[in-house]
Design a protein around this nucleic acid. Sequence first.
DNA 1: TATTGTTATACTCTATAACTATA
DNA 2: TATAGTTATAGAGTATAACAATA
Lengths: 159, 159
Amino acid sequence: MPKVAAQREAAHNYLEDPSDLESLIGYNLKRAYVLAHNDFRTALDADGPSTRVFSALSMIVKFPNITQIALARMMGIERSGLVAVVDELETNGYLRRAPVPGDRRVQALVPTDAGVKAYKKTLAAVRAHEDAFFSDLSAAEKDQLIELLRKIRRRETKA
Amino acid sequence: MPKVAAQREAAHNYLEDPSDLESLIGYNLKRAYVLAHNDFRTALDADGPSTRVFSALSMIVKFPNITQIALARMMGIERSGLVAVVDELETNGYLRRAPVPGDRRVQALVPTDAGVKAYKKTLAAVRAHEDAFFSDLSAAEKDQLIELLRKIRRRETKA
DNA sequence: TATTGTTATACTCTATAACTATA
DNA sequence: TATAGTTATAGAGTATAACAATA
């Protein structure tokens, strides 16, 4: 077998090889995340929201009147990065920035009816994507995976 | 309790709330990945390699004489994106681009002794980061997690 | 015609720093 | 002095498209 073909075979079998890289949690985490993220983007409409915008909308629907700084903390991003996300949701008519009596620095994020409706519709599409993409995992395995990932995420609050 | 303080408390308890977002695998995957990735970068020296460069070096050490296109496929990125990674490794003296007899389009990536040495040193640092960062997980849970992530990654080969 | 490596280019996500208006 | 939102800017990391050399 020529050298290059042998290398290709090695590459093909690499996934099954218990090599240094493959034994790292972080490496497996990244590869799985990238796949899931790409599938999210292709599964939703071309004009569908990014994961960040979807997450923000979900939290605003769940916690109406939340401020941008609280939302940024909840999402684990800087408040400066949230501005464009909120702008997009406002442009789409999914929320409005409402003044908060007693502190004029703050603007409460209030979901509109259209925002709640859009969230529910998108959530259904996201759930369909998850059902299809993680179909190789049983319900028990999915619960197990979420539980393990949550254990890792506990460090969020310690930061 | 004033409204804003109530929102902050809600945000603080959000991690424990079985909300729509929290029940999604993709969301948990992303949050856990971002934490692990940030910890990787801070745990390694300031001049340490990025995750991509580390992964590339690992594969080049494991598969000496691999071509760039085979390496790009193995890493799941475009071949154009690999150029800067290989350039960095070559600049550091960790590999050389060697001509391949019989096909002058191709350049084999050959790790140098310094490259192998650097890889081993960095791998030790990465393992230390993983031991510390995932210390809340038992050995059995770590194995379980890797197994579940690998199940998701099987889609890589189906693409 | 097809493939390998490369360059040019642009887009997404994110961070840091500084500004403004308020507190 | 400190905080909320904003703007400007920059840096990863990635992709697409096109090119030159070679097959």
